[in-house]
Amino acid sequence: MIELQHVSKSFEGLKVIDDLSLEIAQGEFTVILGSSGSGKSTLLKMMNRLVEHDSGRILFAGDEIRSLQPEALRRRMGYAIQSVGLFPHWSVEKNIATVPALLKWPKAQIDARVTELMTLLQLPPERYRKRFAHQLSGGQQQRVGVARALAGNPEVLLMDEPFGALDPVTRAALQLEIARIHQVFGKTIVLVTHDIEEALSLATRIVLLDKGRIVQSGTPLQMLSAPANDFVRDFFGRSDVGIKLLGLQQVASRIRPATGLELTDGEPIPATLSLRQALSIFLSRRVDRLAVVDAEGLRMGSLALQDLLPVSSRPDQQTTRP
């Protein structure tokens, strides 16, 4: 889908991207992660020619991006940023319809698309369609920004720190929405962040940058369990890797079949919950076993506190020496 071949970029003699090669597959949720100044935003902006690369090649769907008109390229790539950038004198529906209007879609098709996206992003159309940006909360403005980026049905969605200015609750809600959009539509998404937890929860692949170079690329599990070097190990944190790993696995992966004899306490938990969330419930309830149910609320089995330990550390997996 997007391929960068030995790409470099400098500003005033300072190399920001250094001989970088990367391939982003169709349908992948790639998160570009790194500290401030690592080149994350520059890398993203080169993909849609908001910043022109100095050397190397960038291909989009097989075409060198410099062979495409910038405006035509950007209409094929939705772009959402932290500052949102809504047109203040336009209504919500007109903001969302920006790209479809430029593409000269029929009015009925535009109206239907606006309704679809507002519903998808939990902005009831009958309530928010005619409102203006100043009448919306920060989280609502960000949802409109995401809807606008998706409105023209782009092949790729580029997102540059889209949730950085939001409060934790709104941020978490929007992260869930983006994950749901990726799951429902299989959209290729490239997201830039410095937030490790955000990267681990959203990405199918993480690309970790330092000084304009890729230090390591892989799935969240690979980045945590097989760091390439000390920089990666330190970046993700040595002391709480176990907790982060629990966040990557669901309760469903550790369920014990129901026997009818085990004792559980309190409301059952869904099998789709992460093991990290289950650990929080264990600690808050002060219990050592929880009942687990499926999406329909039917009992599947149970989860024991000791099941959250690595296999070699579990009491039932240890053997005694003669």
Rank of each mutant, 00 (worst) to 15 (best):
S280V: 13
S83M: 13
A179G: 09
S41P: 01
V215S: 03
R276T: 10
T193M: 01
S239Q: 15
L246F: 04
V184R: 09
G242A: 15
S10M: 09
H53C: 06
L102Q: 09
L208S: 04
F29A: 12
L245S: 13
R131V: 06
H182C: 10
G13A: 06
A61V: 02
A304T: 12
E267R: 14
Y79V: 08
M77P: 03
R254V: 13
P124A: 10
G34T: 09
S137G: 11
N229E: 02
F11I: 14
P315N: 14
A101H: 04
S91I: 02
L59Y: 03
L20P: 00
A147M: 08
R238A: 14
E28P: 00
S36W: 00
T98F: 12
K187Q: 14
I281T: 11
V16M: 01
E177M: 11
G247V: 09
L309C: 07
I206N: 06
R66T: 12
R254Y: 10
P168G: 12
T259F: 09
H182E: 07
L166D: 04
L166H: 05
L298Q: 15
M1V: 11
G145K: 02
A228P: 02
M223S: 04
G242Q: 13
V232F: 01
G39D: 08
M77T: 05
E161F: 06
A108F: 02
G260T: 12
L191A: 07
F29T: 08
V184W: 04
L158Y: 05
P315C: 12
P168V: 13
Q250G: 15
V84F: 06
W90D: 03
I255D: 03
T170C: 04
V293P: 03
L33M: 10
Q318I: 15
L298H: 11
Q277R: 12
I178Y: 00
A199N: 11
F29V: 14
G297Q: 10
A199M: 09
P124I: 07
K130I: 06
Q317M: 12
R74S: 05
